[in-house]
C-alpha cells in the first residue's frame, strides 16, 4: 500500500545516479524485492510510472526481480525455500532458522543513455 512512497524514494536515487553520470535519460531500472520486504511487486509496477512521470526516468522500463524466501536451519544446517507465513526448515520443520533471502528491497542496476555517440 506504500508502494508509491517506495517508488518516489527509488526515483530519487535513480535521478541522483543519472545526474552523477551525466545521463541524458534513463533506459532501464532493475530492482530486487523479496516477499518479506512488505512491498508487492505488482503494486510497485503500477506506482512506478506515476513516480517517474516528468523525471529523467520517465521513459525507463522497470524490472522487478522477485527474490525467493530462503532460510538456513540452525538445527540441521539445511538451506531451502520457505513460505512467507511458514518460515520453517523444509528439511526438518525447525522454526529457529535464519532468513538468508526474501527481505530485499534493493535498487540493483540502472541503465542510462549519455550524450556520447553510440559506438556502431
Amino acid at each position: 500500500m506504500h508502494e508509491l512512497s517506495v517508488c518516489q524514494a527509488l526515483i530519487g536515487q535513480v535521478e541522483r545516479i543519472a545526474r552523477e553520470n551525466g545521463a541524458r535519460r534513463v533506459v532501464s531500472v532493475v530492482v530486487a524485492v523479496g516477499p518479506l520486504s512488505g512491498v508487492e511487486p505488482a503494486l510497485l509496477e503500477h506506482a512506478y510510472p506515476i513516480a517517474a512521470a516528468g523525471t529523467v526516468a520517465e521513459h525507463a522500463s522497470l524490472t522487478v526481480e522477485v527474490m525467493p524466501v530462503e532460510v538456513h536451519c540452525r538445527k540441521c544446517g539445511a538451506r531451502g525455500e520457505a513460505r512467507p507465513n511458514r518460515i520453517v526448515c523444509a528439511a526438518c520443520g525447525e522454526w529457529q532458522v535464519d532468513v538468508i533471502s526474501g527481505e530485499e528491497m534493493l535498487l540493483k542496476r540502472v541503465e542510462i543513455e549519455t550524450d556520447a555517440l553510440a559506438a556502431s
Binding site: 536515487q13 540493483k108 542496476r109 540502472v110 541503465e111 553510440a118
Partner: peptide, 9 residues
C-alpha cells in the same frame, strides 16, 4: 546515444 549500465545495490 551511448548506453551505460551502472551496478548499484
Amino acid at each position: 546515444g551511448r548506453v551505460e549500465t551502472i551496478e548499484v545495490i
